[in-house]
Design a protein around this nucleic acid. Structure first.
Lengths: 170, 170
DNA sequence: ATTGAAATCACCTTTAT
DNA sequence: ATAAAGGTGATTTCAAT
């Protein structure tokens, strides 16, 4: 007698095999460290041939594991020395409103990222501005004023530390 | 009579001119969009010669404006489908303790970033974990347990939207 | 799927304007 | 700051396993 005789419903696999093998892990780790690492170096780091490495990297992109490569910019040095996290409380919680908020806010000038979260607040908006006044204007004009927003609490961001070992938790 | 007859102490310029000219802005914007953009394309996008573009990019790195290039990874697809923001309240607020917390926590497996902020809480720790249980363990073992931490409130992160127009706020 | 080798292409330096 | 040109080395394709 089988442990489970219900047929699995159609759709994406429920993750039968480990997500990343050791080779892929090394490639991803190296690309996290330096997204411009040339293919030759990547291949040596992973212990495989260059051509193999190339197809691996392509596969990682096609599988949606590596979604892009981006520059890291010191916002203070491009004229945006004031950063803040704005916690947003929402009213209706209709799916359409929630999605629209995230999409639209993410496109606003100065927005670093928008986090849709659980708990007392519904969003965290990470924003950068040239001056405290500009920050205030941003919050009043683009967040507080928006329909559905019932609460906005601004915290200054003094410093950001990027994690250096994200992958190891897997 | 000169407006200011004190001699400026030696060292880096106190930023007399605008931070980024139009050419640099275009380069940085393009590198934010795709950090692997080759120099030829970058040069065309900025409307300058390749050799000029090359020195511009070098200068941007040396000036600390572009601090690095990194891959963007879909954490859910590398075995870390559970993300959270943990708001941390601190007790002593000694500089050494605050700095140490940020540095050490950022090195822990699964930590995406650590934000030192103002307000009711002192830190936001963005963390990724394979399961809710692993998240709970992470918080109890690495955050709640740490000396100085008097409060920890965990919010699940449902979705993250990266900003697409950060620079325009400057 | 992985490889080594060969061809193509881009990067980067140099020179000179 | 630019353009042109050459050396260097990486990327990519391909036949073979």
């Amino acid at each position: 007698m089988p442990k489970n005789d219900r047929a699995r419903p159609p759709g994406p696999e429920p993750r039968p095999r480990p997500v990343l093998d050791e080779v892929d892990r090394r490639i991803v780790a190296e690309l996290l460290r330096d997204g411009r690492t040339p293919n030759v170096v990547l291949a040596r780091a992973a212990g495989i041939a260059e051509s193999t490495c190339l197809s691996r990297v392509r596969a990682l992109r096609e599988r949606g594991i590596v979604t892009g490569v981006t520059a890291e910019v010191d916002l203070a040095r491009v004229g945006l020395p004031v950063q803040a996290m704005v916690a947003i409380g929402f009213s209706g919680h209709l799916r359409a409103d929630v999605d629209a908020f995230a999409d639209e806010v993410s496109r606003l000038p100065g927005v670093v990222a928008t986090y849709n979260i659980s708990g007392a607040n519904d969003f965290l908006v990470h924003v950068a501005a040239p001056t405290p006044e500009a920050l205030r204007d941003f919050v009043l004009d683009n967040l507080t004023g928006r329909p559905g927003v019932v609460h906005a609490e601004t915290s200054l961001v003094f410093h950001v530390n990027r994690g250096s070992d994200v992958l190891s938790a897997g």
